[in-house]
């Protein structure tokens, strides 16, 4: 197998749009299954009563990471042909913080807002309107952000390159971190549940 299939010419641009739609269906399906079309479920993460955001996200990251690691190791997937967003550390910090603050205000991120809207939530629809307006606002104000956008340019950069240890060791560390995080998250959920309702401690 020579993957990425598209990069090796297994199918063309028209077919890639069909692939996009099918992959999108899978994406939307699992986001909805996880409960991520519901802002209350998403926001419970930040009030520590339900850590599903962390659990789902890190399980997905670990699953895909292990898959990529295995396929690349076996020689089936050429990682050099997989697109990496270049690292701009300054905008990663500014953008990440802004996204985080916006998340607890808006209740969704762009992807989950589509799921929310699709399943009938009015707040999801309004969020999509806000995101659209914000995108227009950013485009109109782009000259003011041009300098900021160029700050902290480190090019394409991976964690193994930053840390100087091998991909496999970083991947293993991510798995350990995730497993530790899952245990911690479950402990916090139980503690918060018990705090909110001492009677529930009995079971």
């Amino acid at each position: 197998m020579n993957a990425p299939l598209y990069k090796f010419g297994a199918f063309g641009d028209e077919t890639s749009l069909v692939v996009a739609f099918v992959i999108g269906i899978g994406f939307g399906w699992f986001l909805e299954r996880a409960g991520f079309g519901n802002a209350r479920k998403l926001m419970a993460q930040f009030y520590l009563t339900d850590m599903a955001v962390f659990k789902v996200m890190f399980t997905a990251v670990v699953t895909a990471m292990l898959g990529v690691t295995y396929l690349a190791w076996a020689g089936w997937l050429d990682l050099s042909l997989v697109y990496y967003v270049p690292t701009f550390w300054v905008t990663a910090i500014v953008g990440g913080l802004l996204m985080g603050v916006g998340f607890v205000i808006g209740g969704y991120c762009p992807g989950t807002s589509v799921v929310s809207m699709a399943t009938g939530r009015l707040d999801g629809l309004v969020y999509v309107g806000g995101f659209t307006a914000g995108t227009l606002g950013f485009a109109l104000g782009y000259p003011a952000f041009r300098d900021l956008l160029a700050m902290g340019d480190l090019g394409v950069l991976t964690l193994p390159e930053v840390t100087g240890v091998s991909w496999g060791i970083v991947a293993f560390a991510v798995v350990l971190m995730a497993v530790g995080g899952f245990a911690g998250a479950t402990w916090v959920e139980r503690w918060m549940t018990a705090k909110a309702d001492p009677a529930a401690r009995a079971d």
Binding site: F27, A64, T87, G96, P110, G111, G130, F145
Partner: peptide
């Protein structure tokens, strides 16, 4: 929140899906 996150995603070169999930898995 949507309005703010549009600026965050534009500055951060991606959103929760494109940066956190995707880049997270390929150790970006």
């Amino acid at each position: 929140g949507g309005f703010l996150m549009a600026f965050g995603a534009a500055l951060g070169r991606g959103c929760t899906s494109g940066q956190a999930l995707t880049g997270g898995a390929i150790l970006n």
